[in-house]
Design a protein around this nucleic acid. Structure first.
Lengths: 209, 209
DNA sequence: GGACGACCTGAACAATTGCTCACAATAGTG
DNA sequence: CACTATTGTGAGCAATTGTTCAGGTCGTCC
């Protein structure tokens, strides 16, 4: 069923410039509509309407509604992944607090565009879909990174590095989501400071920061 | 529109025992279906089917789908609220860590039944509805409680008590959600210890636990 | 400039959903 | 038993949704 449909919908590479433009307009509109109304209420017709594109065009570029969200998620995760990759190469030495600060800053920056959209991605996303797979794969990568950090860095004092890493990654990600998308959002700079303090004190076993 | 419907649907108090039973069956089924499939895919017909009750009966007890989720949420929040109330009366003295531990334990216990359902409540809940109002009101109560604690308790060392309280409440709530509903959940006892450590070290300014 | 393919259009379809209503079954009362 | 109120039933309606398709418009290249 679904695989047949996918065969009927082999979206091609655009040959003309306007095609790429249309594609981008659809994606922007989808980001806005999903962020504003959530995934369920963000209908494809509404997305097409906001993109000033016919519904037919939308389905020329995306085989179904899920695919739109999937691309949105993929792009977002890739940005985060790249930023973390850069961080990993640049800053080999440094205090734990400094490393965590860079980490936190990346996550905050990565969410600055549209916090509500990201909330949709993490929450309203269809269950058990490829979207969730990608999100959790990305999460596992980050946990692995932090776990290695906790193992290697001399300031780190935790018993179970794996559980601690899971705690830290989840804390940073979830609190940034929650506290920047809240009706009364915490200011970014302060949020960064508090998150760094929290996570660092936890990882250093309550010792000096 | 909606208000007219509500007038047509003044659900009465049940006069016979079987009515209360049916109501409970519907609620249990809804909890299961929502937890399993999410809010959008958890259709009223599916709920009725699982409750072994006709769809008509379901609508005799709940005016619409939202009302079912609302009751589920209300009950859950009330349980948490009552538990916190009891805590507040019992334990006036104690170390910060001890108080936080009691707090964390309540949240974990409150989620033990069906972690996935709670995820639905917090996430898939219809946007800008009464459900969200209740959730955020409960959250504000907890923030106020923690804020007062941070102000009064001698061990607490934080600059901005309000922001710190928001961080702490959000951390406990979100991490319990995330790490008990994950595919590879963290064991409850360990989660409690780690959360208490994290929050306490944060609140005491990195000093001794 | 004509012709072919890339691109775009939007009315309409099939499927699904929340929900209603006319009726049936059951419990309580005398 | 008969009568009424309470509770239960489920086919089907109205509305909405994701998606398709027959046919247009536009760009590009000979």
């Amino acid at each position: 069923m679904t695989s047949d449909r996918r065969r009927i919908h082999p979206r091609k590479q655009p040959r003309q410039a306007r095609a790429e433009l249309t594609r981008q307009r659809i994606l922007d509109a989808a980001a806005h509509v999903f962020g504003e109304m959530g995934y369920a209420a963000g209908t494809t017709n509404r997305i097409a309407e906001r993109a000033r594109v016919s519904i037919g065009s939308l389905y020329q570029y995306y085989p179904n509604k899920d695919a739109i969200l999937l691309e949105l998620v993929t792009r977002h995760l890739d940005e985060g992944r790249q930023a973390l990759e850069r961080l990993r190469e640049e800053t080999l030495p440094g205090t734990l607090a400094g490393i965590f600060r860079a980490h936190v800053r990346i996550v905050i920056d990565n969410h600055r565009d549209d916090p509500h959209l990201l909330q949709v991605m993490a929450e309203q996303a269809p269950r058990a879909s490829e979207v969730l797979d990608r999100v959790s794969r990305y999460e596992r990568e980050r946990v692995a990174y932090v776990e290695e950090l906790l193992t290697r860095h001399p300031d780190a004092r935790v018993r179970d590095t794996h559980v601690a890493a899971r705690l830290i990654v989840a804390t940073v990600e979830l609190l940034v989501h929650q506290l920047t998308a809240a009706p009364d959002p915490v200011e970014a700079g302060r949020l960064e400071n508090e998150l760094v303090a929290m996570v660092t004190r936890y990882a250093t076993g309550g010792g000096a920061v």
